[in-house]
Each structure stands twice: as structure tokens, then as C-alpha cells.
Amino acid sequence: MKSALLDGIVLGLQYGLLGVGLTLIYGLTGVLNLAHGQIAVLGAVVVSLLMGTGLPAVPAILAGLAVSGAVLLALDLSVMRVVYRQEGETRILLGLLLMLGVGFMIDGFLAWRYPIEQLGLRIGGDPISILGVRMSTGSLLASAITIVTGLVLVAFFRLTSLGRGVRSVIQDEMGARLCGVNPAFVRTFVFGLSGVLAGLVAVTRSMTGPIGANNTISFTVLALIVAVVGGLGSVSGAFLAGVLLGVVDRLSSFYIGTYITTIILLVCAALTIVAKPSGLLGRPST
């Protein structure tokens, strides 16, 4: 029970990080990035390929994160320009479908060229005992990275002027523009940031198990569930929902069974939408 709970928190932190990338882009632009998991795994595959050539882990990881970020950055500067010209429902539908298409392209590319390439970062060291539960060094390191990233993100959005600029555009694009914030720059920045975060999740997940081309869709779906439950557009909501869902995930697969677990998570997302579309911590849309 206690180990399932701790495992759930470890897993949940990763879920939260997965959701943050998706929720930021949706909150800012109304584009639901259905290629999030694909971009994450793409970064992991790059890391794995570079490490295969003999590059040390840290520069390889940095290069992988750069590739993930660059893909979303490039999308923002090209395809998404068409989306931003639309308004309301049309913009949301167009963004969703375009990202779905991009996701299939990356998915197909990975399944075609690198079907068996997998990133598995093995972190050495003996298991460490926490509250009487032995946790592997890999999952502790992954959690530490995730927690630090989360804190940095929160600090960034509260303390720096660029972070405040992002929040102001999420709240009111016209108002932000009047105060001298450039929405186009903020969008490009957030797309890049979201890509880097996606790559980071794939890297930290690979510390507890291998990540490859067959993880793409489950990553996207998890990011979607977490972002919806936390409230689309809310960073702290995504982390809260991530930890909650991680605990639910571990507990239900501990007590009930694995196939029910996914269904339970999906039902959580569906019920959240039906009961409170703005999610746990999201602002209700007007």
C-alpha cells in the first residue's frame, strides 16, 4: 500500500510534467497538441541514437531536448500561422486536426525508421530507503528532476517578466499587447518550451523503463488526460492532477488490474469534462 502510494507519486510527477507542456500551448493558443507524446519520444530516440555513437549522456540529452523543442518551434513558425488567423471554434478544430496530422507523421516516421530504437537510461547505485520503502535511484533522480523543473517553471511564471508576459497573454491577448507584450514572440517561446518539456519527460521516464516508438500514443493520451483533469491552461493544476492520477493509477493497478487502470484514468478525464469542464484549478471559461 505504502509502496504503491510512493510509486504513484513518482509516476504522478512525470504525468504532471507531461501535462504541463500540453496545457501551456492550449491555454495560450487554443491548439490542442495531439502530437505531444510523439515529440517527446522523438527527443528520446535522438538521445538514444547519439548515445549509440558514443556521446556521453548529458550532451546527448541536451541535444535530444533541443530537437524536441525545435520541432514545435518550427511548427509554430510555419503551419500554426494559418491557425492563428482563425478565431473561436474554427481555430480550435483546425489546430487539433493539424496537430493530429503532425502526430501521425512523426509516429509513422518513427515506426518506419526506428521501430526498435529505445532509450533506457540506467542509473546506477543501490536502492534508497524512504519511509521504509526501497525506491530505485532512477525513479528518485527522475522525481528530483521533475520537482526541480516544476519549481523552476512556477518561479519563472511568477518572477520573470517573460513569464509574467506569458501569463498575461493567456489571460487577455489584447490587454497584453497594449502593455507592450508581443504575443507572437510569447507563442513561439511557449511552443519551444513545451517541446523541451516533452523531451524531458521522455528522458526522465526512460530512467525507470525503456521508451520507444510504441510509447507515443500512450504519452499523448496521458498528457491529454492530465491536462483536462488539471484544467486546460493551468500549470499547477497539471501537476496536481498528475500526482492524483499517478496515485490512482498505481493503486488501481495494485488492487484491481492493469486493463481497468487505463479505463479508470480515461473515465476520470471524461467525468471531469462533464462535471467541471474547467478542471481542478482552471479558470472557468466565459
Partner: peptide, 13 residues
């Protein structure tokens, strides 16, 4: 799958 993705992107653009 790559082709399907490309078709979706081109069509909706």
C-alpha cells in the same frame, strides 16, 4: 501513416 498525416495537414491547410 506518414502519408495519412501529411494528407491531413495539407488538406486542412
Amino acid at each position: 501513416l506518414v502519408l495519412y498525416g501529411a494528407v491531413i495537414v495539407v488538406l486542412f491547410l
